[in-house]
Design a protein around this nucleic acid. Structure first.
Length: 576
RNA sequence: GCACCGAUGGUCUAGAGGCAUGACUUAGGCCUUCCAAGCCUAUAGCCCGGGUUCGAUUCCCGGUCGGUGCACCA
């Protein structure tokens, strides 16, 4: 039997050999942080993405949009990525180690290092010691290392563009269009599946940390006061799973198993929305084949949270090689992003919420005598009107300040009108609940957890135990012998299955046992074999990958039965 | 990015300053009535660049990729 420490090597060897995952552009030498999905890997990834779509697009009703992977600089200035996604670095002149300049400075007793300009920080660093070799740094240069790939748009290279470091910003900058599309009502959501790019300093760990990776993100816009009113919360109210809160992590305690209802009521998870997507994520990961005992939900520690998030949970999948790997991040991003884009772009990103009953509001309006004031103050008149509107007049008149100049407006030049008006609603900035999935990490986890070796008839067998829902090839079709017309029958069956949208692979090469093994190794869940009885009674055998058991089944029942097996609506055991 | 280790057909692997091993896989054929059987045949390889040498896949230097440790991972 395999020892677990071999799993990574074994599974990556298989993935390479059988066409799941390849190093990119191998003939020129691969590049770290980039991978190619081979034919089977790309198929499997697509199936995983389609399951994700089932959950978010079909079930939740959050439509998918597709934005460019390159965006103009303004987008990432507003989002904070241009300034905040860069680390201040310096290089130790003695040991050549690259260091986080602000960390070194703070270690050396320098205050406010993180807010200093590069030159200031360099000066402050002169007396600090290198964290690696402990020599005094002396003269060093501080430079920003931004994790975004920078490029230029157009021929003159004047317009700066960045490859997006997350797909999320696309949904934020399209907010007003999305709001209109959803007919101005909260809650609504938009999702995006696509590539994101981060120029990691030192990517490692195979396909766990990539420079180009696929994200599936949902941005769900909710009324800030209604985060505890998810309209479908009842679906997951009784869904139970282990939760590792930050308090438990600090005390090194075990995860506690709670239902989502309990988690929200006890304040373990901040609100219903987050809890709902925590549970949905659990269900989805189990659907693609992640074992529940290798899955946990961990709350971010307060100092680990992004500055905008109020609560954040990670779905972590346990890898034999890498330990607990953050695979999905579920964050309450509040109104941070919409506020940032509204401010930077000048486009209001608010939703008008109508009150059930119009509110009577007492309001004071100050109405200037435009005719007199306009003539008197000419080009200052507009500023005076504005200042007057917010002033507090006395019986004697009002004092306003315009361009530093104090101006007295006599009371006879304006009228103060107190009135009661109907206010029908208010503009609010929605909060954003964001489940963000790392598709590549999900793919790796599926590969690692599917890998198995067992013994069949005394021989070792390598088998990828994929869920039929993610298996790249869904059924194999074999003629027992390549003669007596068995091959033509098998070929016809294959084509019939194709018409049903089932990915069936015909194979007549070599002994039948070898063909079963070959399909086991790529995780094909079912195999149909045409034998001599087929010619007598139009039945074939249907073999189950995991149990290696077979049942006889009529040819004309095949498309329907296999469709149901692949979809998961029936099990093989129910056919026995 | 630093340090250490590694890189040989598709995969795994032996090896030596001068013809590059073996196994599995794959393809074609023979045989074969359900789980990698057997036989015949074929295809296919020394990571890249420079140096030393008559000659380098082998030794040296640099690079790339991979592994491990450090740093980094908004």
């Amino acid at each position: 039997m395999i020892t677990m420490s071999d799993v990574f090597e074994n599974v990556m060897e298989l993935a390479k050999r059988r066409g799941f995952i390849w190093p990119t552009s191998e003939c020129y030498g691969a590049v770290a942080g980039f991978i190619d999905y081979g034919p089977l890997g790309a198929m499997m990834k697509r199936r995983i993405e389609d399951i994700w779509r089932d959950f978010y697009v079909i079930r939740e009703g959050y439509y998918e949009i597709e934005c460019p992977t390159i965006a103009q600089e303004a987008v990432f200035i507003a989002s904070g990525h241009v300034a905040g996604f860069a680390d201040k670095m310096c290089q130790c002149p003695h040991c050549k180690e690259f260091l986080r300049a602000d960390h070194v400075a703070e270690g050396g007793g320098v205050k406010n290092a993180s807010t200093m300009k590069n030159q200031e920080l360099a000066a402050a660093l002169a007396t600090c010691k290198c964290l690696a070799c402990e020599e005094v740094l002396g003269n060093v240069e501080v430079f920003g290392f931004n994790l975004m790939f920078k490029t230029s748009i157009g021929p003159d290279s004047q317009r700066v563009g960045y490859l997006r470091p997350e797909t999320a910003q696309g949904m934020f900058v399209d907010f007003t269009r999305l709001l209109r599309f959803y007919r101005d009502k909260l809650p609504f959501g938009a999702v995006q599946i696509g590539k994101s790019y981060r120029n990691e300093i030192s990517p490692r760990q195979g396909m766990i940390r990539l420079r180009e990776f696929t994200q599936a993100e949902a941005e769900i816009f909710v009324h800030p006061d209604e985060k505890n009113k998810h309209p479908r919360f009842h679906r997951y109210a009784d869904y139970r799973m282990p939760l590792l809160t930050w308090g438990q992590q600090q005390k090194c305690e075990e995860a506690v198993t709670l239902s989502m209802r309990e988690a929200v009521d006890k304040g373990v998870i901040a609100n219903e929305y987050l809890a709902y997507y925590v549970a949905l994520t659990h269900e989805m990961l189990v659907t693609i084949g992640i074992k529940p005992d290798r899955l946990r939900f961990r709350q971010h520690l307060p100092d680990e949270r992004a500055h905008y998030a109020t609560d954040c949970w990670d779905a972590e999948i346990h890898s034999e090689r890498f330990g607990w790997v953050e695979t999905v991040g579920l964050a309450d991003r509040t109104n941070y992003d919409l506020n940032a884009h509204a401010k930077a772009s000048g486009t209001p990103m608010t939703v008008f919420i109508q009150y059930a009953e119009p509110k009577k509001v007492q309001r004071r309006r100050i109405i200037p005598n435009m005719g007199v004031l306009g003539k008197q103050y000419r080009n200052k008149a507009k500023a005076i009107f504005d200042a007057l509107a917010v002033s507090t007049p006395t019986a004697d008149g009002a004092d306003v300040v315009v361009d530093g100049e104090k101006i007295h407006i006599p009371a006879n030049l304006f009228e103060v009108r107190d009135e009661v008006i109907d206010v029908r609603g208010e503009d609010i900035v929605p909060h954003v609940i964001e489940p963000s999935y790392g598709i590549d990490r999900m793919c790796y986890a599926v590969l690692e957890q599917a890998y198995d070796e067992d013994t069949a008839d005394g021989e070792a067998r390598t088998v990828m135990r994929f869920s039929p829902k993610v298996a790249p090839v869904q059924v194999a079709v074999f003629p027992l012998m390549t003669r007596d017309g068995l091959d033509t029958i098998a070929d016809t069956i294959t084509r019939t299955l194709h018409k049903r949208g089932i990915l069936a692979e015909y194979d007549d090469s070599g002994a039948i046992g070898r063909r079963y093994r070959r399909q086991d190794e790529i995780g094909t869940p079912f195999a149909v074999t045409v034998d001599y009885d087929t010619k007598e009674n139009n039945t074939v055998t249907l073999r189950d990958r995991d149990s290696m058991k077979q049942v006889r089944i009529a040819i004309d029942k095949l498309p329907e039965t296999l469709g149901a097996l692949v979809e998961g609506s029936i099990t093989f055991a129910s056919l026995e």
